[in-house]
């Protein structure tokens, strides 16, 4: 019974990880930018929702505000930080350090404004009910699984059917050819950042309603997104989402063997193993890097 309970908890964590990882993988796949400030978009989205809730806004407005905040952050990062660096052909590490600087700044500003430590949104949706003997499930589990499922189907349809989505996939494969066809790679990379960051918002809201947010949670989210993207295989959205789900479940199931503080370490042992034995990930094509 403990196993089933942990599996259900893992599904909820996994849905959150899958969404953020898919956002990170979309941005990295299309623009080749290692967006380590992705966790910061998550933090901003979560705190915007928290403030909207605290101010008594209706929840749909809070959700919209939170998505908008994440998108604006992603676009600002692309325009003001990544674009200037890429103009002088900075290497990936220049990008990494710049984005990390931003995430440190935002983390501390949020800490100063909102206070340090965990903050949660209290809602009846996160009260658990006993659905089977000794199995407790809150409505949030179904909501988060449904959200992740719907968004993932929508994203897949967008990337395969909509012209802009097809162009995004083309950008991932061959940026030079995109320009030859008269499409703007700059506009498309803004689009990738907007969509990728927006995917972090629902995950942040679910986290705010269940386990709670703190100002440093962005680090954790970023690390998980990177781990899931690499384990899933760079360039594969499906792989990143699946790996995110697997890491969430693995972290949760590991609790049958080890204590809670080891949960995060489990994800990184998996990542470490993949990097050493199968750097291409589950769905990736072997690249020489």
């Amino acid at each position: 019974m403990l196993f089933l309970q942990l599996l259900l908890n893992g599904l909820q964590t996994g849905a959150i990880y899958a969404l953020t990882a898919a956002g990170f993988a979309l941005i990295f796949g299309a623009t080749k930018i290692f967006h380590v400030a992705h966790g910061t978009a998550f933090t901003i989205a979560g705190y915007v929702f928290l403030f909207a809730w605290g101010a008594g806004w209706p929840s749909w407005l809070g959700v919209l505000a939170s998505i908008a905040a994440a998108m604006v952050f992603g676009i600002v990062m692309e325009r003001l930080v990544y674009r200037p660096i890429q103009r002088h052909e900075g290497s990936f590490f220049t990008v990494f350090v710049a984005a990390f600087g931003v995430s440190i700044v935002v983390q501390n500003i949020i800490g100063m404004i909102a206070g340090r430590g965990f903050a949660t949104v209290d809602t009846p949706l996160s009260f658990s009910a006993e659905i089977l003997p000794e199995i407790f499930v809150a409505p949030m589990l179904w909501i988060s699984l449904a959200t992740a499922g719907v968004l993932f189907v929508a994203l897949t349809l967008f990337l395969t059917r909509h012209p802009a989505g097809v162009a995004l996939r083309a950008l991932a494969q061959n940026p030079d050819l995109i320009r030859t066809y008269g499409l703007s790679s700059n506009g498309l990379s803004v689009l990738a950042f907007a969509i990728g960051s927006a995917l972090a918002a629902p995950a942040a809201i679910v986290t705010a309603m269940t386990t709670g947010l703190n100002e440093a949670i962005g680090h954790h989210v970023m690390l998980i997104s990177i781990a899931a993207t690499i384990v899933g295989g760079i360039g594969s959205l499906r792989g990143a989402a699946l790996a995110g789900m697997m890491l969430g479940i693995a972290e949760s199931l590991a609790l049958t063997v080890v204590d809670t503080q080891w949960a995060e370490a489990v994800s990184f042992l998996v990542l470490f193993g993949f990097i050493i034995f199968r750097p291409a990930g589950i769905f990736g094509v072997t690249q020489t890097r």
């Binding site: 930080v81 200037p84 660096i85 900075g90 220049t94 990008v95 350090v97 710049a98 984005a99 990390f100 600087g101 931003v102 995430s103 440190i104 700044v105 501390n108």
Partner: peptide, 9 residues
Amino acid sequence: GTAMTLLMI
């Protein structure tokens, strides 16, 4: 953090 970002740019 600001110094890191601005220097990189």
